[in-house]
Design a protein around this nucleic acid. Structure first.
Lengths: 233, 233
DNA sequence: AATATAAGGTGTATTTTTTACACTAAGCAA
DNA sequence: TTGCTTAGTGTAAAAAATACACCTTATATT
């Protein structure tokens, strides 16, 4: 790096908040740290960005190395750079979030090369421990973000299995928004948006009347909505 | 910085998008660069963050040095780190925006010590030239942001003089949202929110019937709204 | 076979919000 | 006094949101 003043150099990193939804619970992906500082603590999957890689690329790489999840599209939501946030010096971290379906992604583990992570776990949001560094704060901010976003963008479907019931969808909204919704109104509204495809298929393996399955219909969504959605009430 | 790998070091900077509203026009604050790269180009006020300062602090300092504006509260909205964004090497930039009233802030100029900036200008958004680095992109993203935010948060008032008419307020919404609003519906809705204080005072110096002046009433706003606003339609 | 259980699935009336739409009033200038 | 320009106002119709309760269906149990 020529012509640029040296004393401005800093380290920077990415941290990933990955949301999943399973058995009616919202979960996020954590690693247990294997290195100081905060050895033994839970933390968001994250690490330093290489000098020659794009931030998004780094986020994907680091998520893969620390949890085995590959090719997850994440959205940047905030950059944290408070002076004291890293005990060893100035580290600025760019935070990303993603919502993924747990089906097929339940087994998570760091690559053997990821010396900084001992293991990876899906942690229910309601049982969240205090996290390393300022990661608790980062998590809270990401949660605010998705809470807001789920109200007007169809991101809930990313958390559900490809085929889902309206009740599952409603439960997800209820968990994220932290409020009870009226079943009839919810269904009426959701179906009126005309972004779901009703399948000729029913739920299986339940010990009561099986519900119809639906898919999110991306084509319909794109066609119907350059306008705004509101999934909140 | 001990124990941390050296090859991760990068430079990082802040860039500021400062919005103003004057004579019915939305403007943003630019500097003309006085140094290579992009010498002679317009750019967003921005510079490198020092190793020992918080990012927000840096944003305030740099805005002050490059334009003379002091104590402006800015909100972070995105971090740009594409590999090729700075011709001299890897620079990650944290972008901030603010909306300020132009009254009393029309005269802007870099401090003599700010060698990188030749002059500062309020540029109408509609006349925006191509900017240095990826600043055009940063600007576009900030504009999306405020367009969205003005629809549900009372940030418009920050752009207006302390005392303003409803027509001025409406014009501002029309400029930002880029659509015509109905006068009666706009007023009805705005007054119904009950966040304005009607003053015993009228516009002065106009060559037609003078309009009533209003103030944004922050106390009322806080009292009335933990619910959501919608200023859009 | 009958019954119990548990969730699935549905409709309507009321209220609230949004929209569309056009004229009179006031103040200044000529 | 007249003309010009913007301020200021109301209502009806449509759309969206809300509140609310019962019957249906599949499975499990006896």
């Amino acid at each position: 790096m020529e012509n640029l003043p040296e004393h401005f150099d800093s380290l920077f990193s990415v941290d990933c908040v990955i949301f999943g939804f399973d058995e009616g619970e919202l979960k996020i992906l954590l690693i247990e740290r294997n290195e100081d500082p905060f050895k033994g603590w839970f933390a968001l999957p994250g690490y330093f960005v290489e000098h020659t890689e794009a931030i998004e690329t780094a986020a994907q790489r680091i998520l893969y190395e620390s949890t085995g999840l590959k090719g997850i599209f994440m959205e940047q939501f905030y950059t944290f750079g408070a002076l004291g946030r890293h005990p060893q010096g100035r580290v600025i971290t760019v935070a990303y979030y993603a919502m993924i379906r747990l089906t097929g992604n339940k087994e998570v583990a760091p690559l053997p090369t990821a010396h900084f992570a001992k293991r990876a776990v899906w942690m229910p949001v309601k049982d969240m421990p205090e996290l390393a560094f300022d990661h608790s704060r980062i998590f809270r901010k990401s949660f605010e973000k998705i809470k807001n976003k789920i109200s007007y963008q169809p991101i809930a479907f990313e958390l559900l299995p490809e085929k889902f019931t309206l009740t599952q969808l409603q439960q997800l909204y209820e968990v994220v928004l932290n409020k009870k919704l009226d079943k009839r109104n919810f269904r009426k509204k959701m179906l009126a948006y005309d972004i779901l495809k009703e399948l000729d298929e029913k739920q299986k393996g339940v010990s009561y009347r099986a519900a119809k399955l639906y898919k999110f219909d991306k084509r319909k969504y794109i066609k119907n909505f350059q306008k705004e959605l509101s999934f909140t009430r």
